[in-house]
Amino acid sequence: MNMVVFSGTTEGRSFSRALAALGAAVTVCVATELGAEEQGCADGITVRTGRLDAEEMTALLRGAALCVDATHPYAAEATRNIRAAAAAAGVEYHRLLRPASPLPAGSVVLADAARAAAYLADRPGRVLLATGAKELPAFAALDPARLYPRVLPTVAGIAACEAAGVPHRNILAMQGPFTKELNAALLHQFHIDYMVTKDGGAAGGFAEKAEAAARCGVQLIVLRRPDDAGEATDTILQRCRELL
């Protein structure tokens, strides 16, 4: 029985392996080569790499017993597309969503990256951007010399920083999640005043970022999660057992 998991996340990888262990034939879809590298190889799992349009998603899902959307909590557009494709294919859909984090007192919580950039526009100081390369264009109005983007160590990540005019010495190309100690070391090394991040939950190392910011006296700015409802891994796995 074939089941499709849209992944690229820590929870998606662990879920797909647990599902394969139940005896399902699992197709895991990831958008990038890095996602495929992190997914790795395992018995019972076929990895499909590359972004899919609506028609390709629908075609892939036809005949599947179940579709699980385990994409990032902030991948709102991907979730909309996956949900629509599952409906078009007539396939049962489940959203695997990592729990949100409690936000520390004193955090500045804003709706999106554009509002974070507006907040920072008249506040001097250095900014560590832990929001991903895709959000960099939102900060275009700020002096790029202020910005210290932490991006994945990929050609695309570096290219996004270059396109934004960020000096190469400011680019922090590394793959998380990171410990509290490493976060604090970066904040100290680059004399950071503000850290902008998303609530990636435990899997995204949110608590470690928040604790490091508090320790270093850095203002934490959190981009609010998109509204979404999901289920826990155990709940969806139980449904998979019923189908198998």
Rank of each mutant, 00 (worst) to 15 (best):
74 Y>G: 07
74 Y>E: 00
75 A>V: 02
77 E>H: 13
78 A>G: 06
82 I>E: 00
83 R>K: 14
83 R>C: 13
85 A>M: 09
89 A>I: 11
89 A>N: 04
90 G>T: 11
91 V>N: 06
91 V>C: 12
94 H>F: 15
101 S>K: 08
102 P>S: 09
102 P>K: 09
107 S>N: 12
108 V>T: 15
109 V>S: 06
110 L>G: 01
112 D>S: 11
114 A>W: 04
114 A>I: 03
116 A>K: 01
118 A>D: 14
118 A>T: 11
120 L>V: 11
120 L>H: 06
121 A>Q: 15
122 D>C: 08
125 G>N: 02
126 R>I: 06
127 V>Q: 02
128 L>H: 08
130 A>F: 15
130 A>V: 13
132 G>P: 12
133 A>I: 12
133 A>T: 05
133 A>Q: 11
134 K>L: 12
135 E>H: 14
138 A>M: 12
141 A>T: 14
142 L>Y: 13
143 D>V: 13
145 A>H: 12
149 P>R: 03
153 P>Y: 04
155 V>R: 13
155 V>M: 09
158 I>N: 00
160 A>T: 06
162 E>P: 01
163 A>E: 10
164 A>S: 11
167 P>V: 09
168 H>M: 08
169 R>T: 10
170 N>E: 02
176 G>I: 03
176 G>S: 01
182 L>M: 14
182 L>K: 02
182 L>S: 08
185 A>R: 12
185 A>C: 05
186 L>R: 04
187 L>H: 11
188 H>I: 02
188 H>P: 00
188 H>A: 13
